[in-house]
């Protein structure tokens, strides 16, 4: 709060008191009061005006400056009203009340949205469980009926993948964190994914190489399964036609973290696309020229990794390889 601006704001008051003084002066002169006395009266008049002005300024100065300071320093600016004290002047009190009122209304409205978003997520989870029943049933029917060939299975698996995408998108977007962190074996997790995708991997004659996978990390195994499954599904989408497809899965160990690499020898990602691939709905060049892409897969992965506290990175050279790495923090405290 600047004094000059405060004065400018009080321009009307100042002008009125000036005019008033001129009128008083006129009167005093008309009554033949000595100029020395007029000077004293004028001095008292302006002094009281000045003191009044300064007093007004400093009361406001304290209130507003504290507020500006808090607002600048708060990460969540909407918490301002709970940081501010009720001031001792009327306007300020009115302002404070309005601030509290609007804040409360915003909180209510946010709570409403949070509730409806949670309800939506709950419904999605419920729906996912429901829809999985007929899919499971159909898969069994296909298996039990020897006349039905594998192409039906393949389509059912595609449906299942789409269902999983919806569920994990809902989970990743939601404020409610429903995961459970425990020690998870990367070897076991990968074997589940490999087994699930075995038919497709073999049809496309993919060579799988694993190295140093016999480690445990702290994570939610279901989420990790989904994340790794998505990365491998991506690799399978963008294999190069010029060479035998290959996916290597390996870990590198550091003192403070374990990094899991999933590397394929596919078409790679261009350097101009690489910084944006984790952004929502970003499809890039590969998404347009090769397999159809929604641009959601990697975004969901990034979101899930952020929630779990894992660091996910991508490295690629176009036409040579893509390497997605996930770093898991080591925390011996959690282990106990």
């Amino acid at each position: 709060m600047k004094f000059s601006k405060f004065l400018a704001d009080k321009a009307v008051t100042i002008i009125i008191s000036m005019v008033t003084w001129l009128i008083i002066w006129d009167f005093l002169s008309a009554f033949h009061i000595k100029s020395g006395q007029i000077f004293i009266i004028g001095f008292v008049y302006f002094l009281s005006g000045l003191i009044n002005m300064l007093w007004e300024y400093f009361r406001r100065y304290r209130f507003y400056n504290d507020m500006i300071f808090d607002c600048d320093n708060l990460e969540k600016k909407y918490l301002l009203s709970s940081m501010t004290e009720n001031p001792d002047f009327y306007e300020g009190q009115l302002f404070y009340e309005i601030l509290c009122e609007t804040n409360k209304s915003m909180c209510d409205s946010v709570a409403e949205y949070r509730k409806s978003s949670e309800e939506f997520q709950e419904y999605i989870e419920l729906w996912v469980h429901e829809i999985k029943l007929p899919v499971a049933s159909l898969l069994l029917m296909c298996h039990n009926n020897p006349d039905i060939d594998g192409k039906y299975n393949e389509q059912l698996r595609r449906i299942d993948d789409c269902i999983e995408n919806v569920m994990y998108y809902a989970r990743s977007e939601n404020v409610k964190k429903d995961y459970l962190i425990k020690e998870v074996s990367l070897k076991r997790t990968f074997s589940k994914i490999a087994l699930k995708n075995r038919e497709e991997l073999q049809q496309r004659n993919v060579t799988i190489k694993t190295k140093n996978l016999d480690v445990s990390v702290m994570t939610d195994s279901k989420w990790l399964e989904y994340i790794m499954g998505q990365i491998i599904a991506n690799s399978m989408k963008y294999f190069s036609a010029n060479r035998e497809p290959e996916i290597s899965i390996y870990t590198t160990d550091f003192t403070e973290k374990t990094t899991l690499h999933i590397r394929d020898n596919g078409i790679g990602i261009s350097a101009s696309d690489l910084p944006y691939i984790f952004e929502k709905s970003y499809t890039g060049n590969n998404g347009r020229t090769h397999a159809k892409s929604t641009g959601m897969g990697l975004y969901i992965i990034k979101n899930l990794c952020d929630s779990l506290g894992h660091d996910v990175k991508a490295d690629s050279v176009q036409g040579e390889f893509t390497d997605i790495s996930i770093s898991f923090g080591k925390n011996n405290f959690i282990k106990m």
């Binding site: 298996h143 999983e164 459970l180 699930k196 195994s221």
Partner: peptide, 28 residues
């Protein structure tokens, strides 16, 4: 058909021998 870690951990701690999520691969 519930795919959450909590359900799996709960089931295993109650003494389940294995935990499989739907839709499962019949061979598996």
């Amino acid at each position: 058909s519930r795919t959450s870690e909590t359900d799996e951990v709960l089931s295993m701690s109650y003494g389940a021998d294995d935990y499989i999520t739907k839709p499962y691969n019949p061979t598996i």
